[in-house]
Design a protein around this nucleic acid. Structure first.
Lengths: 299, 299
DNA sequence: TTTTTGTATGAGTAAAATTAATGGAATGCT
DNA sequence: AGCATTCCATTAATTTTACTCATACAAAAA
């Protein structure tokens, strides 16, 4: 009764803003689409669109159906693609979700050998998810989730792929630059730069500042690593990032890494997968590559 | 291209075991179904079924499509139902997921006034989920999740609905019955009865035994609360359950509740919902009912 | 007003889905 | 083995559905 085509219709009409435009988009005549819309409404028994003059507005039911369409259609399209891949032999696609901003740099280093090793597998990386990375994994929106926060859920497996130390990045002439490690109090007068994520997902708070009940003077969020470190180098603030990441930038910018607290803040990155994908060879291979990746050692 | 009908076909053929049976089930002739199957395979470009004699077996691609069908069809059916509800006025349905075995008894007490208050809303309770309760919530398999373990995820909201104390249940003539509280060591010689869930989800372990590195003599799992408490009453073991639940059974069975540790084990029950359902009045109303439910006081 | 743009509808048509009829192939029974 | 039975595939006929064309109608724009 409710067919895929109907979902495409309500989506297209909304996206294109008018029946005529949607009809073109769907490679149909305006008449055909109009017929379909009327039959859909009759079938359901309630209007989906309010015709206000030549303006179309969604009813509550229409709004609901649009949501459903936006959620289900991508899944159907993905299923179709996978089937096509089955047909074409061992093609495949690996959709990676990232919940760890700085990991992007690291990921690139894994992806390139992977692409070489699996020429028939496409890789896609996504970073924004309606229900978070875990939701995306459960919704089949992605196949692999890279995250510092593993979740143990039936049907999912998380495994650690590498360990790193989260360090404070300061300009190389900063007072902290030559210290063995920083104390939370050292940040009291500083501006802290971070990616725009919730505070409880920032280790510099959860593992360093909060336990000592210290807050930095200011806190600014910045989207990209490059800009963030440019800002640090020019004395506008300090940031907390993985040591291996800072090490790379040290060559280009006057930066120094300082341990947070005497023991440092040690972290792990996990990759999560659905158990139902256990049989997918290239997914397994990707995780192996990630696990065996050797980070540039401290020199 | 890949239509809902195709999903129903692969599901029905698998469920019914034969094309003929599936055809009847779908109210089609065997011929029609056979045609559809062949066209589907042609459209995709790969076989979905292996014809071994008169036996049908799924290919890898077929297996994949079956999984997809099992996941997507219920969602489409639910969407259809919701639309029908829109058409019929303010009808609705509330699908509750439970991740908390003993809560079932409590839930019943909320459901009955709810049904009275919202005569046009149907309630359904589910307890088994492929990807756990959280996955079910994200997958639109349920609308509300009752759980002792809240998850903070974008797009979801968890809120506490009541507090309770988890206590040890022992036969009323048991040595522990008159003690102020039990020590972990007291369980060393006992048989512990619990619901069949992972050990790390049993508070008696995580909050009582594990910290003291104590294990009970034996551990048996039992599905139902009634039988479990019958077993306890007849001296076959001890169990850990909410105090309010034990109190009810005390009237019928010779049982006693004992605090776990000097401080007791305090727990909360949360309900989780999708933020996109925020506008659904009856869902809000259910949570209000749950939150305001007054537990029988300690007498 | 006239023109333009967007939508709805009825009738005819092309295409797709379904059925009926039939034959072949595997399985079970005697 | 022989026969009946069950199950699936195929062809041709039929019904149903989706689509287009032509056209009428309504709201903006000129």
């Amino acid at each position: 009764m409710l067919e895929r085509h109907h979902l495409k219709v309500i989506q297209a009409v909304h996206q294109q803003g008018s029946v005529t435009a949607a009809a073109n988009h769907l490679h149909l005549t305006q008449s055909a689409l109009s017929h379909t819309m009327r039959k859909l409404e009759q079938g359901i028994g309630t209007p989906l669109w309010l015709r206000e003059g030549r303006q179309l507005r969604l009813t509550q039911a229409g709004e609901f159906l649009l949501n459903t369409a936006n959620r289900l259609l991508p899944q159907m399209e993905h299923a179709e693609n996978r089937l096509r891949q089955f047909a074409e032999g061992e093609r495949g696609s690996l959709r990676i979700g990232m919940e760890c901003h700085p990991c992007y740099q690291w990921l690139l280093k894994i992806v390139s050998p992977f692409l070489a090793q699996w020429p028939s597998v496409d890789v896609d990386v996504k970073q924004k998810f309606q229900f978070g990375g875990l939701g995306a994994l459960l919704d089949f929106e992605i196949d692999l989730l890279v995250t510092p926060d593993p979740f143990y859920r039936p049907g999912l497996t998380f495994e650690p792929v590498f360990d790193y130390e989260q360090v404070l990045v300061v300009p190389s002439e900063h007072a902290l630059a030559n210290r063995d490690y920083a104390q939370p109090e050292d940040l009291r007068g500083e501006t802290l730069l971070s990616y725009p994520v919730a505070l409880d997902r920032l280790d510099v708070y959860t593992h360093f500042l909060n336990p000592a009940a210290v807050a930095p003077r200011r806190h600014k969020t910045i989207e990209t690593t490059d800009i963030m470190l440019q800002m640090v180098a020019s004395g506008r603030g300090v940031a907390a990032l993985p040591r291996w990441l800072v090490r790379e930038y040290c060559e280009k910018l006057p930066l120094a890494a300082v341990r947070m607290g005497a023991g440092g803040v040690d972290k792990q990155i996990f990759v999560g997968t659905r158990d139902s994908d256990k049989g997918t060879e290239y997914l397994r291979a990707f995780i192996e590559l990630a696990r065996n990746y050797e980070h540039p050692e401290v020199t």
